[in-house]
């Protein structure tokens, strides 16, 4: 059940579309910056497989130029 946070850089001029798309993923929490184009994305999934699949979907979004992983918390860290 990993939790991960990323900085998402939208494709130029597509910030709002990216936000809309990300909102469609139930396992994504998003926090757009107020005065920059970037968006913070926190993913909360049930398994490593689901996490991988979600990551795959995210990086294939045409509205997303680049996704930088910032932190990752494993099951163990969450339980302890």
């Amino acid at each position: 059940m990993p939790i991960k946070s990323y900085i998402a850089h939208p494709t130029e001029g597509r910030r709002n579309e990216l936000i809309m798309k990300l909102k469609e993923f139930s396992s994504c929490n998003i926090t757009p910056a107020t005065n920059q184009e970037i968006v913070i994305v926190v993913t909360d999934t049930f398994s490593n497989e689901e996490d991988l699949a979600l990551h795959e979907k995210l990086i294939n979004l045409p509205e997303l130029k680049h996704l930088t992983l910032v932190s990752g918390f494993s099951d163990e860290e969450i339980i302890n």
Binding site: A33, N35, I38, V42, I78
Partner: peptide, 24 residues
């Protein structure tokens, strides 16, 4: 932990983008 993950990302963004603000 989710809050920590957001905080970590906010601070990383702060160190990458001068003057960035996350009012939301």
């Amino acid at each position: 932990v989710k809050k920590m993950a957001i905080s970590a990302a906010v601070l990383a963004a702060v160190s990458m983008f001068p003057g960035i603000i996350f009012a939301e």
